[in-house]
């Protein structure tokens, strides 16, 4: 019996010299893996035009109806997107969202993607209603981690 206890003690002693598994969370943040489904982003093309063409396919694909889109015709002089139309209103209720990723699968232009951001706590329910301005990125190139979210070959392009 003593031998077995010593064996156990030796095992625990060996464990105490292993590298710690703890991540000191607020100080150290782990890189999210490719395919992590966090807060939504709306992307742009390289020339700065919005990818979203207001087709509402994401809204239709959404199993919990958390996406609301209204679309309008583009002004031919100064288009917002590369399609005929663009999303004049694009709202996602992040409290409803189950982060299934169907919206990004449905999107024909790779506009809406689920990003790596997971720290979006709010102190008010109303603040979880993200509008277009909250979701749209300035430059897609600044978010290389989002490139893995859509397949460039399968996108409808208007170029």
């Amino acid at each position: 019996m003593l031998g077995e206890i010593c064996k156990g003690l030796w095992l625990t002693l060996k464990h105490s010299f292993k590298n710690r598994v703890t991540v000191q969370y607020p100080d150290v943040k782990e890189e999210m893996p490719v395919g992590y489904r966090g807060l939504h982003k709306l992307l742009r093309w390289e020339d700065g035009l919005e990818r979203c063409v207001g087709c509402k396919l994401c809204s239709a694909a959404c199993p919990v109806d958390c996406i609301y889109v209204e679309s309008e015709e583009n002004d031919p002089e100064a288009p917002t997107s590369k399609g005929e139309r663009y999303a004049s209103i694009y709202e996602i209720n992040e409290l409803r969202c189950i982060f299934c990723g169907y919206c990004e699968e449905a999107c024909p232009v790779g506009a809406v993607v689920l990003g790596n951001e997971y720290e979006f706590c709010q102190d008010d329910r109303g603040k979880f209603l993200y509008e277009k301005g909250d979701l749209l990125v300035e430059r897609t190139e600044d978010h290389p981690e989002l490139h893995a979210r859509y397949d460039e070959k399968n996108l409808l392009t208007y170029v």
Partner: peptide, 10 residues
């Protein structure tokens, strides 16, 4: 924590 490969209160 040492034995359980954690850090413990710090």
């Amino acid at each position: 924590a040492l034995i359980q490969v954690r850090v413990g209160p710090n």
